[in-house]
Design a protein around this nucleic acid. Structure first.
Length: 200
DNA sequence: ACTTCGATGCTCT
DNA sequence: GAGCATCGAAGTA
């Protein structure tokens, strides 16, 4: 998917990213990939949950790169993979929160040993670890880079297949329905009860 | 230097 | 469902 696809409002971009495939190609040539089953949108400055603009000056600069570039937001000491959306200078992004593993599952388990396989990539930091991503190496590169890129969904998911809820782990802006999951998919991150506010 | 706060994950009940 | 590890950034002094 070309960088220009991500320019603009991150909310529809996040919705449209469901069903896309995230592909990681290791130096050895081995492919690790997964289907995106959960995303969230963050959109400074209208978004109360987006703390980048208000509090984190240095991190805002990293987040406010040109559309269609990879970036990492750190939370609780964990790196979270995102795609920048708004024009350079405006912090806004889509957060990739969960994958359904496709290729290279054994290698992913090597990077991230888990006892229950369903825990392999069902969280935003989990998938970063499972793919063996080095933030310092990936951040700032284009989303169509050979090492880490996106393949478009085979067909757009219809509304019945998409569940729309509040975002995870935030205080401000918790009423905004900006989290998108593939309905019924077992690889979606563990849901909290308070999350089933908006049901689309 | 010290404190607080997360866009999380892990390990128990 | 709850408690804790964790770490960079920001606010306070």
């Amino acid at each position: 998917m070309p960088p220009r696809h991500f320019a603009g409002d991150p909310v529809p971009v996040a919705r449209g990213l469901l069903g896309a495939t995230l592909v990681r190609v290791l130096n050895s040539g081995e492919r690790l990939s997964g289907r995106i089953v959960e995303t969230e949108a963050y959109d400074c400055p209208r978004d109360p949950a987006c703390t980048a603009g208000r509090f984190h000056a240095a991190r805002s600069a990293e987040m406010a790169i040109a559309p269609g570039h990879w970036l990492f937001w750190a939370a609780h000491g964990h790196p979270l993979l995102q795609v920048a959306c708004r024009p350079r200078g405006v912090p806004a992004s889509v957060l990739i929160r969960a994958l359904e593993p496709l290729e290279g599952r054994a290698q992913m388990l090597g990077f991230r040993p888990v006892t229950r396989e369903r825990d392999l990539t069902n969280g935003p930091a989990k998938l970063v670890y499972a793919l063996g991503l080095n933030p310092a190496q990936i951040a700032g590169t284009r989303v169509d880079s050979p090492g880490l890129h996106l393949l478009p969904p085979e067909g757009p998911l219809n509304d019945a297949a998409v569940r729309v809820t509040a975002r995870v782990g935030i205080r401000e802006g918790r009423t905004l329905p900006w989290r998108f999951t593939v309905r019924g998919n077992p690889w979606v991150s563990p849901a909290l009860p308070s999350m089933a506010l908006v049901d689309g």
